[in-house]
Nucleic acid binder design. Sequence first.
DNA 1: TTGAAAGCGATACCAT
DNA 2: ATGGTATCGCTTTCAA
Lengths: 339, 339
Amino acid sequence: MESTRPDPPTLQTVAAAAGVSRSTASRAINGEPRVSPETVEAVQRAVRELGYSPNPAARTLVTRRTGSVALVVPETGDVLFSDPYFATVLSGITAGLAPSGNQLILLIGQHPGDGNQMISYLRGGHVDGAMIISHHRADLDADALGKIPVPVVLGGRPVGATLPGMPYVDADNAGGGRLAAHHLAGTGRTRLGTITGPLDMPAGIDRLDGWRAGMREHNLADDATAGGDFTAASGATAMARLLDEHPDLQGVFVASDLMATGALQELSGRGIRVPDDIAVVGFDDLMFASTATPPLTTIRQPTREAGRLIAETLLAMLDGRTPEPAQILPTELVRRASA
Amino acid sequence: MESTRPDPPTLQTVAAAAGVSRSTASRAINGEPRVSPETVEAVQRAVRELGYSPNPAARTLVTRRTGSVALVVPETGDVLFSDPYFATVLSGITAGLAPSGNQLILLIGQHPGDGNQMISYLRGGHVDGAMIISHHRADLDADALGKIPVPVVLGGRPVGATLPGMPYVDADNAGGGRLAAHHLAGTGRTRLGTITGPLDMPAGIDRLDGWRAGMREHNLADDATAGGDFTAASGATAMARLLDEHPDLQGVFVASDLMATGALQELSGRGIRVPDDIAVVGFDDLMFASTATPPLTTIRQPTREAGRLIAETLLAMLDGRTPEPAQILPTELVRRASA
DNA sequence: TTGAAAGCGATACCAT
DNA sequence: ATGGTATCGCTTTCAA
């Protein structure tokens, strides 16, 4: 005795139940204008009673719209998920997408080099558009990107030349770096250094550039730098190196809050007081910045807003509109205890 | 002068280029056995040269397989993303899904009560299966869940009766609560309390139950409790209440690391030393547990493993296999400085 | 306003 | 091993 599930109702079933043709039923369901009110009513009742729901594959086959967009993260899962930045962007993206009813398909690089495989997915007609965030130089080359046949929005300035027709949304990273320099210099400290992000990522490059510009404006040397990779562990390591090489350091700008927590640990481990001995400024202002010890003075970037804007920009393109090629979101200093 | 994109090649195009029929081309592409090697070769070359990629909608229409599964999170985006638990589970899920080639569709509740809308999506034939995590009692009722026509795996024990045919994966929350009780009692402290999670969630309920069982085994009173909702802020508030009501408190089990960071802040704000004055045990052992001040002694649950297991269980069901109705993952005590 | 019929691009059954 | 053909469920001209 097999309990066999009955086939789900099709448009045909609905049409029959409502006493109309498939064409008319389809029009009624899709809210087209030229359908008589009583017909609409009859069809809607049939839909309700039968529990009908249109077969998305069949619909896509003819309309050539899938109703879903991809979020591409060409980053190994492990790296990605340890960074709360991603969760926050994602939150903004889902919020931005929600009103449109589009579904979000997550494409996450498992192994470095998966990039091209993802691109072939995007070329396959599975989605109407795509958003790409957190891209390293190595992960996608402009040629491959150019072949994607659907609208694409980039989260973060692309490395190298701007991709034609591929708008991006980013925070004013350089501006934020300058803010940090101004703030630290403004406290009267003169021996200042920075812990940078990866210098193959625009976020890493631009924050450093801004910092250097700010230092120059204050006639301060910008030679004290150490590189990290946006993880907490790398922040601790870099802090150690900086301290060893520049024992007279008075303040440090750390290019992400996550690295800053690592740096704070290293400082506290050495018995160095923050901000009394060394002042620390972070970047991001994600959740845990305010709960660090001491609470972190940092450069806030509107991460969630960026996510929302990325989604909205894609929706605009799906709608046939042409967005600004670059949308840069402002950063601001948030004063807490660490500097 | 419109730059019009040429229509993508279809199976027809490929077949013509290879000098075979559509049927044969289809077989060659899908690696079916009864195709001559030279035909396979010819088709593959045509595919390559034309840059052909099968239309997924057309394929789904006939095979009734979408190649994608949904991850349902009936939780408001904001709540969700502030909890690193989610990111870690997601990491495990994507890893578990990867070998299968299935794509992940993210369904996130924007507004409380979106639950049923999500369920109608699952009924619509968009996905081959679904995983549901972090569910509150209110969000989904058993009736609605039962109507989902595809395999479903639950992340976390369902509230109330087990859903028939709907397996779940969970950590041994009760066991973890007992571990915490044993550890704190084992240090000789006798005035112990707990900060619970939401008591409409199994994770909240079970950890409390385990804690109480452990306390009884040590003949200790289990009356000192305060409720939180798994956020850091709620941890601080609950800690304050506990301190006010039980000034003689010597140790506390906090049902999540995130709440524990809030509790630590409250304690440090009052000048109470950890663990000297009050010992603290958390739950989760997510990334930041080890970087808290002091580093948190906590009950580790294998979060990423759980994610992977959820995905693998779903894949097994898609394969026609019948999984264990409940898979419970062990928890363990991780000793650090706070207790 | 409605209906009939022609696709959309694949798979799968049935012959050969 | 290969080809012809029906079919999946829907949208969209085209006529009426």
